[in-house]
């Protein structure tokens, strides 16, 4: 075990081509604030394969130090390889806390790691601060589908671990790269990785849908009525330069691919504008979008719960108003 430091670590997840995933850069923003308050360094931990691009990104976004683990076995995320690498690094360098993006991989890794180290983990946080009284990180997270917020501390165990939602924090400004780079020669033997990827089944219209990073989202639900009905949704999204989202019901019907789904079992989003069309507003849907800045609800049923959180509502047929709204915007832009 290394001597304990006051450093704050941020895990930088990488893509298969060695570039950085957004959330690992976003987290350098609250990371800087917490590291300064804790009186330690802000450290970005980069794990992946051929990671030079990701290392550079971390440097120009303000990391004081970058610890790199680079190897073929880290190209694709696996629980076993990533847990082994991080457990090794955390024991060796002993930072006081670490932030991990609450991506599907991050939420697979976080608990496995916390259990191996015998420390506490707070999942899926939406706000971070330092508890003035104790100096611990105060992790804030939603529970009960977003009906309740809880502030959690990990007073007696180190490191303090948390996963943090993508899209909650903005990337820090670009600055001069002053990062000290530490390369760790750590490898995981193939026989210690106990899962194998046998096949990937891409959806017919495999497209990259960046809902987490979108400023404007126009979503359709069961009220859209069919795959064809999504055309009006897509047209509105297009004129606004936005991204198309969907409810679980629309995904389950097969009208649109799962990569568009917003909610508890889909993506968590926080755009400036979220337009929900033909979506009732079940708690599992709200859990994924209620923190949007401005919410517009378009629904035939005045009693639909979506109106409870909407800033602007229209009670009526989406097929009538959505195309008219699209035209209004087109006219204004012309």
């Amino acid at each position: 075990m290394g001597t304990k430091t006051k450093d704050l670590w941020v895990l930088l997840e990488t893509n298969e081509d060695g570039t950085a995933k957004n959330v690992g850069i976003e987290l350098l923003n609250p990371g800087r604030r917490l590291a300064d308050k804790q009186g330690g360094k802000l450290v970005s931990v980069v794990i992946g394969c051929h990671t030079d691009a990701a290392v550079k990104e971390a440097g120009v976004h303000g990391a004081d130090q970058i610890i790199v683990v680079d190897g073929e076995e880290f190209r694709r995320y696996t629980t076993d390889a990533y847990t082994a690498a991080l457990a090794h690094l955390l024991k060796k360098h002993a930072p006081t806390s670490m932030l991990i993006g609450a991506t599907p991989n991050g939420r697979d890794l976080g608990p496995r790691l916390s259990c191996r180290l015998g420390t506490g983990l707070t999942a899926d946080c939406t706000a971070l601060d330092i508890d003035e009284a104790s100096g611990n990180i105060a992790w804030t997270r939603p529970a009960f589908g977003g009906n309740l917020m809880a502030v959690i501390l990990c007073p007696d165990h180190r490191p303090q671990l948390g996963t943090v939602r993508p899209g909650v924090f903005k990337k820090p400004d670009v600055c001069e790269d002053r990062a000290e780079i530490i390369r760790e020669d750590f490898h995981v033997p193939a026989d210690q990785i106990r899962t194998t990827l046998l096949e990937t089944i891409r959806e017919a219209s495999a497209e990259i849908v960046d809902l987490e990073g979108a400023d404007i989202i126009v979503s359709g639900g069961r009220g859209v009525g069919g795959a064809e009905g999504f055309r009006v949704i897509r047209e509105l999204a297009d004129v606004l330069g936005g991204t198309v989202g969907a409810s679980r019901a629309a995904v389950d019907e097969g009208w649109i691919s799962h990569s568009h789904q917003v909610g508890q079992t889909g993506k968590t989003v926080g755009p400036k504008l979220y337009i929900a069309c033909g979506i009732s507003g079940a708690i599992q849907h709200l859990a994924g979008m209620s923190s949007s800045d401005v919410i517009v609800a378009i629904n035939k049923d005045f009693d639909a719960p979506i109106f409870g959180i909407a800033d602007y509502g229209f009670v009526g047929n989406l097929f009538e108003i959505v195309p008219l709204l699209t035209d209004e915007i087109k006219k204004a832009k012309a």
């Binding site: 015998g118 420390t119 105060a138 009906n147 309740l148 809880a150 501390l153 990990c154």
Partner: peptide, 9 residues
């Protein structure tokens, strides 16, 4: 290891 400090609506 984790303790709930407070909860709020």
């Amino acid at each position: 290891p984790t303790k709930v400090k407070r909860t709020y609506v």
